[in-house]
Every structure is written in C-alpha cells, then in structure tokens.
Amino acid sequence: MLQEFFAALTDPNVPFIRYALIAGLLSSVSFGIIGSFVVVKRISYIAGAISHAALAGIGAALYFKHVYGMDFLSPLHGAVIAALLAALIIGLVSTYYNEREDTIIGSIWAIGMATGLLFIAKTPGYVDPMSYLFGNILLVGRQELVLILFLDMVVIVLGILFYHQFLALSFDEEFTRLRGIPTRLYYILLIFLVALTVVLMVTVVGIVMVIALLTIPAATAGLFSRKLWQMMVLAALFCALFTSIGLGTSYILDFPSGSTTIVFAGTVYILSLIVRRTRG
C-alpha cells in the first residue's frame, strides 16, 4: 500500500500528490516558526479569523476570473490579499483600540467567510466551497506551488531576521517598548507573517483546519522545548511529519487529506500531553 503512494509520487500523470507533498514540506518551516510565535503569544484566535477571512479573497478571485475573464487570477492571490487586509485591520484594532478587540476579530472571521461564500455562489459554473473550507490537494498546481515557495521564503527570512524582536515582544511587550523598539509595528508585522503563513496551506488542509496545523505542531513541540528556537525546529519537523503522513494515509485509504492530517496531528498532541503529564 505504501508502495502505491510512493509510486503515485513519481507518476507524471498525477502531479498533484507530488505538488501537495512539496507544498506541505515547504510550508512546514514557516508553520514551525510562525506557529510557535502564535502559540507563545496566544494569538491563535487571530490566526483563525485571518484564515477564515481569506475565503473572501478566494471567492472574489474566482468570481473575477470567471465573470471578467481575469485568467491570471488564482484563488491563492485573492487569499493573500484578503488575509493581509484582515491582518491589517486586526493589527490596528488590537494595538490602538483594545476594547472589544474580540468582537471585531469575531466579526472579521464571519464577514470574511460570508463574503467568500456570496462570491462563490455568484460565480458561474460549479465551484465547491468545501474544497476551500476543508482542503483539496487537487487545487495545488504548478503556479500555486511557485507562489507558496515565494511566500514561504518571505516568512522564513523575516521570521529569522526579526527573531529576537518577536521573541522579546511576545515575552514582555512593555519592556521591549522601553528598549526603543516600535512594538506596535512589529506586532503588525508578526500578524502579517501569520496571514502569509496561513495562506500557504489553505489549499492542502483548508481554511477551517489550517489553524490546527499552525498551533498543534507548535504546542506539541512546546511540551519538549526549553527555548523558543528549539520549539520552532521541533514544530517544523512535527508539521512536516503530520502533513506527509496525512497525505500518504489519505491517498492509501481514500480519505480527505486535510481531515486525515488534522486527526493524526491532534492524536499525537493529546498523546504527548498525556506522556508529559504522567512523566511529570
């Protein structure tokens, strides 16, 4: 059965499995870095809102592509723009208007999804929203893979370059500000990186489950790490493991890839928690 999967990986007739696996492995590095920041800074609800808001962009891109013949548009382009826009609004709201931050985040979450579904409903031909909500590896084409690689590089480079600033910001924002660091700016930059990271795996695991893949590997890694960078390395490895095993299993058993990946990741996390608890 496993041979079947490896055969499929090298089969030129089914490139999408190969593309999905490459997308998963590439994105894992970003997921390890940014996922760890999301977990230690406790902003997974922000990541959730951003990923759901991305549907607005996906829907809009599909609509403009089919109605106005903008063939260069890929749903991923729309996802990037919508995610960055949502990140900007959330970033500004949470740095300048602390009150009711959660209400605004919740609204963006819902409005983004609703807008996306409206666009999809009005797009001629049949587009299945399920593919975007829960992932569909058939959506990963060569063009998408190039974009994923590019965004992945952006996130990794900025994440490493500003590692110390993001670490200090997450640990003690007030003190970081007293070191002369423009913390609000860095916070918004961090949320932008969260937005780009979320988009990387939207096609593989879907909008609804992408937050799980952002936080579960990092949370699992956090159980065994004393330093943030160790947590990041371990989280990236976990993420790569979860997506490859998820993809392989889903291919062999003919399960949806996103759900398979998340169920596997969640199981490993819960088992790790139990192991950690029982061993003190």
Binding site: V40, R42, L161, F162, H164, Q165, L167, A168, S170, F171, D172, E174, F175, T176, L178, R179, G180, I181, P182, G222, S225, R226, K227, L228, Q230, M231
Partner: peptide
C-alpha cells in the same frame, strides 16, 4: 525597568540567559 515577575507567562520557553539578553535588544534586525 524591573516589572513584577508574577505577570509572566508560566509556559514561555525561554532561558534565564535569553531573558537577560533581551535587555540588550536593539531596533535593528539581526
């Protein structure tokens, strides 16, 4: 500035040395 220690996240993965190093943090990247 020395804040109260009790307001820190109990689960944050950071060593003593890393905490003290943040006292040297600069605006520039790197």
């Amino acid at each position: 500035y020395v804040p109260q220690y009790s307001r820190f996240d109990e689960q944050f993965p950071i060593t003593v040395y890393e905490v003290v190093l943040t006292g040297r943090l600069e605006k520039r990247a790197g």
